[in-house]
Every structure is written in C-alpha cells, then in structure tokens.
C-alpha cells in the first residue's frame, strides 16, 4: 500500500502538483490518468523518489519516504519494479542479461539459479527463445514484455508503469494491460500505472485517480468512471468519437 498525503511539487514558479492525497492499494492496478501536462509523470517521479516534493508525505506501508535514510531508500528501491515508457532496456545487454540485471545487483544467487528465474519470468510474459537477442532485435511489444519481466524478476512489492501502451498497436496494448493486471493479482503487488489510454482504463482500472492541472479531481474504478457526472472526467473520457458513440448507444439502450 502506498499513501500520499498532500504532496506539492513546483518547478520554478510553476506549481505542478497542488496538494494531492490518495491511497494506492495492494493487489490492485491503480491508474493515474489525466490530460498531458496534468502532473501524472511528476507524481510518478515523486512516488519513485526521483523528485522530492516540497510539501507532504509519501508512505510506503507505514514509513514515509522523506523520513527514510539513504540505506532505507536504497532498500525500498530494491522492492520496486518499474516499466518505463520506452522500455529502458540496456542496449549493450542481451535480453537474458537485462532480465538478470536486478538479480545480479541485489541477490547472492548462483548463476544457474538466476538463469532459472530469468527463464521463469520470461515464460510468464510469454517470451521464450529470445534470451540471446539484443533489445534492438525484437519488436516494441516484446521489449515492453522484457521490461515487465525485468521489473518482476526480483519479486517486487511495488510495480510502477509509465505509459505502458505508448507506441503499441491496440491488440498488443491489451496483452500488456492484461499481463500487468494478472501479475498484480498473482504476486499481490501494489501497481501504479500512469496512462491516458482509455482502453487501459476500461481493461485494468481497479482504482483510478484523475488529475487535472495538478489536482486530484476524481477517484473511482472503471465502472464508476462511465457513470460519473464530473464534467472534467466526462470531457476526458468522451473526448474520442468511439467513446461518444458507445455512450450514445448506452443511452439509447436505456
């Protein structure tokens, strides 16, 4: 569980996060959504400790990240898995070496044990026979899956995903969404996904936080979001023709 209490973050004179408080629950896919520039990525980077908020607290379980010393923060980061927008796989390493990387850095396992674990997680993300390839030799969707494998290989307690579907076709995007949700339930991870993709919201939005101009304006799940009359949310959800048509059909059916 991750709890945020009244966090504020500015860059220069511009306040990006304006006092956000919420809770991201364990074993659920928690989504941060909103338009570009709403503060989603800044909020994610604050959660990761890459940005320090000027005010407020971020609690991992019952311990505030701001009150942790350097060693405690390093230990916390060993419990974090991160799926970056572009995958962020290490170009100079093979797929196997990429996935094995967190194990090599943080465990004392033997090479055979690490290899077994790597093959296990690669099989879990439906990727086999690519161990010796380099990231540049596989597709974008496969890179995302490798990135998920690397994120979960060391059994993280927290999984963060930044725009996991960007640059993917709708079918592959759904596969990635489902994979994230399955892994979240299977390993009972606290997952936080930053996205502006409505398909992801519909597929995996178990707890959705909607940001606008650095403020949390709505929170609910993927069923609530279609029933809410919050204008900011409806403007965002029904900004595409597809969702407008779905809404019209639903109204006609009623």
């Amino acid at each position: 569980m991750i709890k945020i209490e009244n966090i504020r973050k500015s860059f220069g004179d511009e306040e990006i996060l304006k006092g956000i408080s919420t809770v991201f629950e364990k074993g659920k896919t928690n989504l941060i959504i909103g338009q570009s520039g709403s503060g989603k990525t800044v909020m994610l980077k604050c959660l990761l400790g890459l940005f320090q908020p000027e005010e407020g607290y971020i609690y991992y379980e019952d311990k505030a990240i701001q009150e942790m010393d350097e060693e405690q923060q390093r230990h916390l980061r060993e419990e974090i898995g991160m799926l970056f927008q572009g995958g962020a796989l290490f170009d100079s390493m093979t797929i196997e070496e990429n996935v094995m990387f967190p194990l090599r850095m943080f465990t004392k396992k033997k090479k055979t044990e690490m290899l077994a674990r790597v093959n296990e997680v690669l099989a879990r993300v439906n990727l086999e026979g690519v161990n010796r390839k380099y990231p540049a030799e596989i597709s974008g969707g496969m890179q995302k899956r490798v990135s998920i494998a690397r994120a979960i290989v060391n059994n993280p307690k927290y999984l963060f995903c930044d725009e996991p579907n960007s640059g993917l076709d709708p079918k592959t995007a759904t596969v990635i969404d489902n994979l994230i949700q399955e892994i979240t339930h299977e390993y009972s991870i606290t997952t936080v996904v930053v996205t502006h993709d409505m398909n992801s919201v519909m597929e995996i939005g178990e707890n959705i936080v909607f940001l606008k101009n650095g403020k949390l304006v709505w929170q609910g799940n993927n069923e609530d979001i279609f029933k809410t009359d919050n204008k900011d949310v409806t403007d965002f959800v029904y900004s595409s023709d597809l969702f407008k048509k779905i809404r019209d059909i639903q109204i006609e059916e009623q």
Binding site: L48, L50, R77, E78, I80, F84, A88, F90, M105, F106
Partner: peptide, 17 residues
C-alpha cells in the same frame, strides 16, 4: 547521453543503483 535519453539512467536510479 543515449542512456539518458532512453531512460536507462532513470532505470538504474529507480533500482537504487
């Protein structure tokens, strides 16, 4: 620089390295 642009350095930092 390429590692910075492609978020590989962020990936290292997030892992606590």
């Amino acid at each position: 620089g390429s590692m910075r642009v492609t978020e590989q350095i962020d990936a290292l930092e997030v892992m606590g390295i």
